[in-house]
C-alpha cells in the first residue's frame, strides 16, 4: 500500500468504528437490559412476549406497553418483546403452539388472529393455546365522508339493502379480520346475505381513510381509535358504533339502538403455549392481574384510548371459543 492508501484506509476504518460505536451505544443498552431477568424480585425470570405482527402494529403496541408498565410497576423486570410477523399472526401462533410447556413465553393477540387462523386454514388454532387474559377492547365505527348523502345509519342501511353491490364498504383488514367481520355481521342483521356485500380491504385504517374522505367507498368500518380526530374535526360523519354501549364523547347510536342486532367489539389479549402446569399458568394470570391493577397500566389505557375488557383464565377461554365459532360461521357463509 502506498502512504495515501494507508491514510485513506485508516480514515475509513476510524469512520466505520465511529459509526459502529454510535450504534452500539444507542442500541446496546436496550438490547442488553432485556432478557436478563434473573435478579431477585422477578416473578417470571426471562419472560418473553411474542408479537405476531410487525413493529408499530396494534399487538406490538399492546405488548410493548404491557412489558414497560409491568417493569415500571415493579412486577417483574426484563421482559423481552420480539416480533414474529406473518400471515396475519398465524406464523406466530404456530410457533407459540410448538413451544409446548414453555412457561416463559406469552403472545399478544386479538380478534384478528382468530380470523387469520381460520381464513389461512392454519392447522393450529387458538384452541391449542393456554388462554391467559383479555386486556382491552375497542368498538368499530361506521363512518361516511362529511358530504355523504347518508345522514343516519337507517338511511345508509336502507340504501345498502336495495343494492348491496353498489355500496362498496371499506375496511382496514383483510378477509377474516375485524373490520371485515363487523360489516358482515351488520349485513346479516339487516337481512343482506354476506356474500352480496361488496367489501374492499385496505391495508389498515390509514390507507382506508383517503378512500372514505374521497367518497370512493360508500362507507368505512374501522376501529374507533383510528378516526377520533377526523370525527371530531367533522371530516368524517359517524353514523353508528358496533358495540352495545355508546362511546363517551361521541354523538352516535349503537347499532342495537338503531334496531340492528349487532354486538361487535375488537379486542386484544394474551395467550401462552399449551401444556403449562397449573402453577405456571397461575403465575402468568397473576402477572396480568397485577398489571391490570397498576396505575401505570391505567394511565397507558387512558393515553391510548383503550377500553378495559379484563377477563382471565377459563372465562377468557370460553370467550375465545365463542369468538372462533362466530368467525367460522361468517367465513362459512362467505364460502372462504
Amino acid at each position: 500500500m502506498t502512504y495515501r492508501q494507508v491514510v485513506a484506509y485508516v480514515r475509513l476504518r476510524t469512520l466505520l468504528a465511529l459509526l459502529g460505536a454510535v450504534v452500539l451505544v444507542l442500541a446496546g443498552p436496550p438490547l442488553l437490559t432485556t432478557g436478563s431477568g434473573a435478579d431477585t424480585g422477578t416473578r417470571i425470570p426471562g419472560l418473553r412476549f411474542m408479537v405476531p405482527n410487525t413493529p408499530g402494529g396494534g399487538y406490538d403496541i399492546t405488548a410493548r406497553t404491557a412489558a414497560r408498565d409491568a417493569e415500571d410497576a415493579g412486577l417483574t423486570h426484563g421482559i423481552e418483546v420480539f416480533n414474529l410477523p406473518g400471515a396475519g399472526g398465524t406464523v406466530g401462533l404456530s410457533r407459540l403452539v410448538s413451544e409446548h410447556g414453555n412457561g416463559k413465553l406469552a403472545m399478544s393477540m386479538g380478534l384478528g388472529v382468530v380470523g387469520a387462523a381460520r381464513s389461512n386454514h392454519s392447522p393450529k388454532t387458538l384452541a391449542d393455546t393456554t388462554p391467559i387474559a383479555r386486556l382491552t377492547e375497542e368498538q368499530d365505527v361506521v363512518v361516511v365522508a362529511k358530504d355523504s348523502p347518508y345522514r343516519t345509519i337507517g338511511e345508509l342501511i336502507k340504501a345498502w339493502r336495495e343494492d348491496p353491490g353498489k355500496l362498496p364498504v371499506g375496511g382496514g383488514s383483510s378477509p377474516g379480520g375485524p373490520d371485515h367481520l363487523a360489516p358482515m355481521l351488520m349485513a346479516q342483521a339487516a337481512g343482506i346475505a354476506p356474500k352480496q356485500v361488496n367489501y374492499i380491504p385496505f391495508d389498515g385504517g390509514g390507507e382506508l381513510l383517503a378512500s372514505i374522505l374521497g367518497s370512493k367507498v360508500a362507507f368505512g368500518v374501522s376501529g374507533v381509535g383510528e378516526y377520533l380526530d377526523q370525527i371530531r374535526s367533522g371530516e368524517l360523519r359517524l353514523l353508528a358504533v358496533t358495540g352495545t354501549e355508546r362511546v363517551p364523547g361521541l354523538d352516535a347510536p349503537t347499532l342495537q339502538e338503531a334496531g340492528y342486532n349487532v354486538d361487535f367489539t375488537n379486542w386484544r389479549g394474551i395467550v401462552a403455549p399449551p401444556g403449562l402446569s397449573d402453577t405456571e399458568r397461575g403465575k402468568l394470570v397473576r402477572l396480568f392481574e397485577e398489571l391490570h391493577d397498576s396505575p401505570q397500566w391505567r394511565e397507558s389505557m387512558r393515553k391510548n384510548g383503550w377500553s378495559d375488557a379484563f377477563l382471565t383464565g377459563e372465562e377468557f377461554g370460553r370467550f375465545l371459543a365463542e369468538q372462533d365459532r362466530r368467525v367460522v360461521s361468517v367465513l362459512k357463509e362467505l364460502g372462504l
Binding site: 400471515a87 381464513s119 389461512n120 383483510s174 378477509p175 377474516g176 380491504p201 372462504l336
Partner: peptide
C-alpha cells in the same frame, strides 16, 4: 395471500 379474497 390474495389481498382481496384471502386466497393463497
Amino acid at each position: 395471500l390474495d389481498q382481496m379474497t384471502g386466497q393463497q
